[in-house]
């Protein structure tokens, strides 16, 4: 099944950290640093991210503006810090929503099988075959653009993928002797799900979620880039990329720094996902 030694107890976080393979620790560390940066954004950012400064239009990086300034003279460093905040929030929210929905759906489909599986899996399979961006754009066309809608759109793209992974993992666990044993020992099906199936089937879902989180940054960026995600003037990494593209030749820093930030996030999630896969999904159920 899953891990031989899984973290539990008081110093769980520290133990969980050292239980990860080395490369995954690097990924986790980067993410922790990024989250702290976004939490402390008001302290870290030297300028108001939206403050327009005509005297600094497309200014090159210097001490006052370490990442330079954009077409409106706004401080790229401060905007990147705040954009990180928006983007990470969208990433975490979308993956969390999708995982929380996928967990009960996939578990029920895998454990009960039969018509329960049909009722759950068929519609999700249909979602899966639709092109991801089309799905997102349709949703946004109905509800209107914005950060929350972008997060929901990403969650909708991810739900069938995560549910499928959770279904496969639950299916395997459902046939383990200890699951039948749990029922024979006097527990109800629901209690057996909670006590045996979910804890043992969770690994691949976590792995898949971490891997998808990396892609979520890119989807968020694409949506914002297309003007369908976060709305200006709120900074998001995708939005900054699209603004930077127009001035790429004169002021590459407007484009480079948010681009780098995206690359770092993707890298961190991939490192984490790979490491988790090592520990939690040795059979490689997550794609």
């Amino acid at each position: 099944m899953t891990a031989k030694s899984t973290p539990a107890g008081g110093t769980a976080v520290v133990r969980a950290f050292f239980w990860l393979p080395r490369s995954a620790r690097a990924g986790a560390l980067i993410l922790v640093v990024l989250v702290i940066v976004t939490l402390l954004a008001p302290l870290i950012a030297p300028h108001d991210p939206n403050a327009i400064d005509p005297t600094h239009v497309l200014a090159a990086p210097d001490l006052g503006h370490p990442f330079g300034a954009d077409a409106l003279g706004r401080d790229v460093f401060s905007r990147t810090v705040y954009a990180l905040r928006t983007s990470l929030a969208i990433v975490f929210a979308s993956v969390a929503v999708a995982s929380l929905a996928a967990l009960p759906l996939g578990t029920a489909a895998g454990y009960f099988g039969g018509w329960v599986d049909q009722v759950i899996s068929r519609p999700l399979d249909m979602l899966l075959v639709l092109p991801a961006l089309l799905l997102a754009i349709t949703l946004i066309a109905i509800v209107g653009p914005g950060s929350i809608v972008a997060a929901l759109a990403i969650a909708l793209i991810y739900l069938p993928i995560l549910a499928r992974v959770q279904r496969a993992a639950s299916l395997v666990v459902a046939h383990a002797g200890f699951v039948e044993g749990g029922r024979a020992r006097g527990w109800s099906s629901l209690a057996v799900l909670r006590r045996h199936v979910v804890p043992n089937a969770l690994g691949p879902l976590l792995v898949q979620a971490a891997i998808l989180a990396g892609f979520a940054v890119q989807i968020e960026a694409s949506l914002s880039f297309l003007g369908l995600g976060t709305q200006p003037p709120t900074p998001s990494l995708g939005l900054m990329l699209s603004e930077g593209r127009d001035v790429l030749t004169q002021a590459p820093w407007v484009e480079i720094f948010p681009g780098l930030a995206i690359a770092v996030i993707v890298l961190a999630f991939n490192l984490l996902g790979d490491g988790l896969r090592h520990r939690l999904d040795p059979q490689g159920m997550a794609s």
Partner: peptide
């Protein structure tokens, strides 16, 4: 005997 005991 292994499959009938929850590994966790």
């Amino acid at each position: 005997p292994l499959g009938s005991l929850d590994p966790r």
